[in-house]
Simulated scan of single mutants.
Amino acid sequence: MSSEKTAAPASPASPASSAPADGRPVLEYPCGDAPAPGTVREIVPGLLWLRMPMPFALSHINLWAVRDGGGWAAFDAGLQTSETTTAWRDLFAGGGALADGLTRLFVTHMHPDHIGMAGWLTRKFGCRLWMTRLEYLNCRVLAADTGREAPEDGVRFYRRAGWDDNAIEAYRARFGGFGKFVHALPDSYRRLRDGELLQIGAHQWRVVVGNGHSPEHACFYSEALKILISGDQILPRISSNVSVFPTEPDADPMGDWLASLAKLRREVPDDVLVLPAHNEPFRGLHARIGHLERSQHAALDRLRQALGAPKRAVDVFGELFSRPIGAEPGLLGMATGESIAHLNYLLHRGEAVMETDDDGIAWYRAA
């Protein structure tokens, strides 16, 4: 069952301002202004920064290209939109920065802003799509939901969270929209594995897999270049959405997310330049990880206090998020999924219990 999520990776808990607030680390942003769509900025010799537009509140995604033999290996693909297509065509045109074409395409994970143009690019250049197994297969499943009616499992999931009839009606109307921004995927791919070493052009890159934001998210670390292509697994100014969805209502993505942050700290040194999917390249990886961990644990502490009395998932938004959550379907869906992720984290650790009433509504309280 696909969710209504399309491209926005930012948690509702993300700060509205990019200016440092109390307790937030001051990161370094050494790469200057972002390139306009259809142009590039060189980060180091043979590694280019591309930026593609998105028609959302989060208005962009960063993509990367690494010189790979006679062409370029691209990292992520952008949404399937006419604006993204135009930007790619400008890059591939004679005299464009990527006029030599693509040798292969690496995709960090299955969200449409990352995989949307993958089918178009791989077919255009006859090149292979490289991604992890769970990301590829989950994307195929969600794309297959396009045009389906909302399943009753999904309706029950959001009813149980406390949604009213209007919100359920909006869910039914929006269901199956995942494939809107995703070109038909190639029918085969090259599987990426955690810890795998890849020779891309002149340098070796190691695959570092994380979880929580998506099922099997791939980051790419070059020790020689001291660069980490982080996708959505670590972002400098916003936090990634970590949600439970109707397909796996008992999941513990928050536990996976916190474990993945600790793994990144262990496996990737602090002196790297981080190339994220959103915002700007930055230095200060370990400080950013520490801030994200502290923020998540502070939110969990507030939730523990709130569960002194029984609460539904929709009743704890105030404890978790830095902005009001209204009736806008996309934001409500992300906030609900993330609330359940926090609640499931406590359930899995025996710190909370959940009881379902006669109307099918789930009520949570401290154990």
Rank of each mutant, 00 (worst) to 15 (best):
E355Y: 01
L27S: 03
H286I: 12
P15L: 11
E293G: 04
W130N: 14
C139P: 05
H297I: 13
Y189T: 03
Y158A: 11
G210T: 15
G333D: 11
D252N: 15
L48Y: 03
G119V: 05
A298F: 09
C219D: 04
Y345I: 08
E196Y: 11
R41D: 00
F157I: 04
T39R: 06
R349M: 15
G70P: 15
K124T: 13
D359S: 10
Q199H: 02
S17I: 02
N279E: 13
G176D: 02
P15Q: 06
W64V: 06
E135V: 04
W130I: 11
L303C: 00
N279S: 12
D90F: 07
A16G: 13
L105T: 08
Y171I: 10
L235G: 08
A251H: 11
E328I: 12
D33H: 08
W88G: 04
E293N: 07
C127D: 02
N279C: 11
A202N: 01
E216C: 01
V316K: 04
P53T: 04
D270P: 03
R283Y: 09
G70M: 12
L225Q: 14
R266Q: 13
E216K: 06
L47M: 09
A10S: 01
L303M: 02
G308S: 02
A97C: 00
E152R: 09
T356A: 13
A335W: 09
D270R: 07
Y171D: 07
F175N: 02
M1F: 15
G78V: 05
P20T: 13
S11A: 08
P53N: 06
